[in-house]
Design a protein around this nucleic acid. Structure first.
Lengths: 231, 231
DNA sequence: CGTTAACTTGAATTTTGTCAATGCCTGTGG
DNA sequence: CCACAGGCATTGACAAAATTCAAGTTAACG
């Protein structure tokens, strides 16, 4: 018996295909299934009452969708490219996880990664300007798409500019202008509309602010001394 | 033997006190312990290289801190008010969780709640304006501090305006101005500097956009048809 | 009761969003 | 294989929202 992994768990399930724009599930649907993505890219998003859309993540092959949830899905998952997935019922998935001491920590680790990504995104949305957001985004893709980013500077952007905007909390125009600026500064180069080449990874990282996001213990200590008066 | 709960798990650990401004741990520290908060309020935050601060959450009694993590803490946790906590070593905590089929789903549920909160926050930061952000924040506190919000309209705000600003992705001035507007419109009333009274919960919820954040399936279907040209 | 930090308010500036027009891929059909 | 249509992306001019800078005001604590 091979070492049980999350991938292996799904490997006997039939493969399903989704076309561009097709939804795996909708926000508010009963959370009945968990999916593993084999091929393709998905966007997961929520929509406010007046139509504003927020993309909370992009899903790539190897990722799971629909795990970290409640009774109902908290977001819609939609294919950006032709996509292949395998699925489990939620109940069966939970049983399998619960019964396997090997699988549990794997799932836990994934949730922690997801949480870490969510926090990075909160930092981006709360305090980074347009240029920093776009740079951070491109850098994240670069890191996700290949381990040694220096080796494969070409990055595919399967999502539209509108997707990027709704992920970065910007408008499509601001994303476009910011990309143009990065092109002009030779930090990236266009490679068709849906790919770029990173020409200056170091500079991109500097702009993104991913360089030295480090804490500086001596400083914080007395800066933010909040006082609780009604003790 | 009583039904095992996460609270009970900590109940034999000694109680530790932290003063205002004291840190339980720093971003980047080895993640050695998990904490349960008994009393007080904490802020958890990260700092960018140039000093910009992002508060990713406020922690109240009953919450756990330091769980959803990697080798190192991803954020600093600092007491906003005099705080009492109990702690476990991470290792011992993991063992206990792993050995208890009752505790595991409880922890899992908490992580899912945390993930859901993180997504709400991403929506807030990506697409809501200042007024919506502040209203959402006050509403969240109201819901957290008492079940039936109508019954206890007074809400304590132990954090400073700067804390609120760094949580909401705004400046301290914008938070102040927005609060003033809500005061003038009689939606909330000040109760000292560190508490408010909600005078019109319904209106506050409308402003926050928490009313009808519902999906409208018929609309999305063909709106965001991204195309993948390089198939 | 005075000192100091926190908060509020105002005016000017900057960034990003909005609206509108143009340009360019991409996929389709001749 | 090429021409064309339609969506997507880019660009520009203007408007709006939030930030920045600069005083003032208030409230907590010694």
């Amino acid at each position: 018996m091979p070492a049980p992994t999350l991938q292996a768990l799904f490997s006997n399930q039939p493969v399903e295909k989704f076309d561009c724009g097709a939804a795996l599930f909708w926000e508010g649907d009963d959370a009945t299934h968990v999916f593993e993505v084999l091929e393709g890219v998905l966007r997961i998003f929520r929509i406010l009452g007046d139509g504003r859309r927020v993309i909370t993540g992009f899903i790539y092959p190897g990722d799971l969708v629909g795990v970290s949830l409640k009774k109902r899905y908290l977001y819609t998952a939609e294919a950006i490219t032709p996509t292949k997935v395998r699925r489990f019922t939620r109940m069966r998935f939970e049983t399998e996880i619960n019964e396997s001491p090997e699988l549990r920590p794997q799932l836990f680790a994934r949730l922690c990664d997801e949480m870490a990504a969510a926090q990075d995104q909160m930092v981006l949305l709360a305090r980074k300007n347009a240029e920093e957001r776009v740079a951070s985004f491109l850098l994240m893709l670069a890191r996700r798409l290949c381990q040694d980013a220096a080796l494969c500077p070409e990055i595919e952007l399967p999502m539209t500019r509108l997707d990027m905007a709704d992920y970065l909390g910007l408008t499509i125009e601001t994303v476009s202008r910011t990309m143009t600026k990065l092109f002009n500064r030779k930090i990236i180069a266009p490679s068709g509309r849906h790919a770029i080449i990173i020409r200056n990874m170091k500079e991109l990282a500097t702009i993104a602010g991913d360089d030295d996001e480090d804490f500086r213990p001596t400083i914080h200590a007395n800066v933010h001394q909040a006082v609780w008066p009604h003790a």
